[in-house]
Nucleic acid binder design. Sequence first.
DNA 1: ACTGTTACCTGATTGC
DNA 2: TGCAATCAGGTAACAG
Length: 280
Amino acid sequence: MPELPEVETVRRGLSARLTGRRIARVHLARADLRWPIPSGFAQALTGRRILSFARRGKTILMRLEAGQTALWHLGMSGRLRLSAAGEAPPPARHEHVVLETDDGARLGFVDPRRFGSLDLLATASEADHPRLAALGPEPLDEGFTPAVLEVALRGRRTAIKAALMDQRVIAGLGNIYACEALFRAGISPRRSAESVRGARAARLAAAIRATLEEAIAAGGSSLRDWRQTDGALGYFQHVCKVYGRAGEPCERCPGPRACRGIAAIVQHGRTSFYCPRTQR
DNA sequence: ACTGTTACCTGATTGC
DNA sequence: TGCAATCAGGTAACAG
């Protein structure tokens, strides 16, 4: 499930619980997820202290001593579950990786579909990692302005919806929040990306930011100690305004009679939800 | 270079 | 109830 708000919520949970801890043990139940786990992964982590957790797009960067960074990507079905010393987490299928820290905490990476990935960055620079280096601007950074969005979209002849999901254009949006941001901005997912300029780009930039911030706030406030009862970090029921609501009236139309209902169309193999009356 | 399609995996849900 | 078909929030390899 995880798009930027979920990943950011997971990051905060990890940070609150694991910053400063030393990794005592790494157990790999298999050698690959989406890609092979780097051969030196367990060795690079074992015995090292965790300095901090950062995030770039949907990737969590676990900063370690000696300039090492472990990259965690949850893919589509990945989740992390954390338990404290003495807690015995219920057995979970598809738990592929387990870390144990010096204070007895246990972090398990569960990912049924295995679209997630683990990677290792041995230098301090994200520019040295091809997938991170290719990512577009970070939408919650101060530098994410309408002008930056406009430049990112310039010359893109694809639909704005597809552009927003392209991580090279902007980092962190997936299908849900691309739909929600476009609804908020009143822009049709079918409009061409390059036609989103000027006031439209300004509306979209603001809508992206507000949508993500609201979702993060909802996730943060709904999780006590950043964990659900099963120890899973960072998942929450975000209330969507258009995603998954095909046929329902949208909240911006004056009434059910005015609204033709939220439409679902397939673009680039993904379902887009939008209100054809208020999104142009 | 850009754009769209397909494949990768398992599980939940829908339809017959 | 059972079983098959369909769909799922991500990404990159590939074809045109």
